[in-house]
Design a protein around this nucleic acid. Structure first.
Lengths: 196, 196
DNA sequence: TACTTTTGTAAGTGAGTGTTCACTTTAATA
DNA sequence: TATTAAAGTGAACACTCACTTACAAAAGTA
């Protein structure tokens, strides 16, 4: 038996979570399967995490660190607003496609809705993304690029629908997907809303 | 013990399914809970349905009959395209809010994705809705109301994001919601995309 | 009334769940 | 080299799951 540090095991476990979700589905995510995937006993899992719930919380925290922090860099950069919005959208879509397990986890847990800790973490991510987009849009309006009569909140809701529906279609269709083309198409539509 | 016909019991069971989902969450939807909600033993459930999966399939078939058929009537009516699209959107949003259990079921089962029968039924509903919207949009374009350069498929994807994100927000926020105002706001944005 | 069918119940099945336990192995340090 | 703490084991825990069985009682039919 190989012995590794808690830190590396935690990383392995979290990776295994996403692998199982995206290849076998959320319902197959048992501690038994998880242990088997990592190549370790079930008891060892509980050496490195307090509970299954804590594993999922930790995964979601990673999402925040990896995706949201990355997006923040874009929203605070000095690109001009249209480029900024496009880059932001592409980043989000790309992440969504490359980390299918994450989004299935996010949306399914959102619907199960039993656990308020998990739900709060999800809301946090959702709100963070909304605020960044509002910021981008308002910057565009202030710089005179976009229409000042625009309802920002409504626009953000419509925007957030894109990752939401994309996830559903990815799961249902399970097929191949041209993400760059998708981003372009969506951005064209968004610009028609924004333009003066 | 009261004895009722299979038909009425089936209806009671399906109603109980949606009640449990929307008030307690999908994870509480066990055959045990279901039987308790109907006021009947667990065995009685299996007198009227072959399996739990069949219960869910039957619920989803009801959605098709109630929502999709209703939407079809709108899309085939003789309203002018803008009114038609607005009516269609409102109907969908209203249904989504009044039948929260249904949408949680639809989206969560979509994510679980183990069962291809359920998945196919979901895809059927999704595709049916998409086709109706495409029809409405194309009618608008043909009648010269909307821009003929519009990418219909992309528009439909963006449109379908509205119910998708709304569902997520409803589950996460759990708060009150002004749906008429919501429809108006979304329609204003959609029209900006469509207009010539 | 007598017989069959339908609808119901209570108790039970085996498999699966997340979690804990006493215990063993490993590796670094005193 | 001996000690100690971290890491791993696998069986067992209490529980839930979807589903089945054996049998009772009501309803329908003759």
């Amino acid at each position: 038996m190989i012995r590794l540090s808690t830190k590396t095991r935690q990383a392995q476990i979290k990776e295994a979570v996403l692998e199982i979700i995206s290849s076998e589905g959320l319902s197959k995510l048992s501690t038994k399967n998880l242990a088997a995937k990592v190549g370790v006993s079930e008891g060892a899992i509980y050496r490195h995490f307090k509970s299954k719930k804590n594993i999922l919380l930790s995964v979601i925290e990673d999402v925040y660190r990896n995706l949201v922090v990355n997006q923040k860099a874009i929203s605070e950069s000095d690109m001009i607003p249209p480029i900024k919005l496009f880059t932001f959208l592409c980043k989000q879509i790309k992440y969504l496609i490359n980390n299918k397990g994450v989004t299935i986890l996010l949306l399914s847990q959102a619907n199960n809705a039993n656990d308020s800790d998990l739900k709060n973490k999800l809301l946090e991510i959702l709100i963070a993304q909304k605020e960044m987009i509002i910021q981008i849009v308002e910057e565009g309006i202030n710089k005179g690029v976009w229409d000042k009569n625009l309802d920002c909140d409504a626009f953000v809701t419509l925007y957030m629908g894109i990752p939401a529906i994309l996830n559903i279609e990815l799961v249902l269709n399970k097929g191949t997907f041209n993400h760059e083309n998708f981003c372009n198409k969506m951005f064209v539509l968004l610009e028609r809303i924004l333009k003066m």
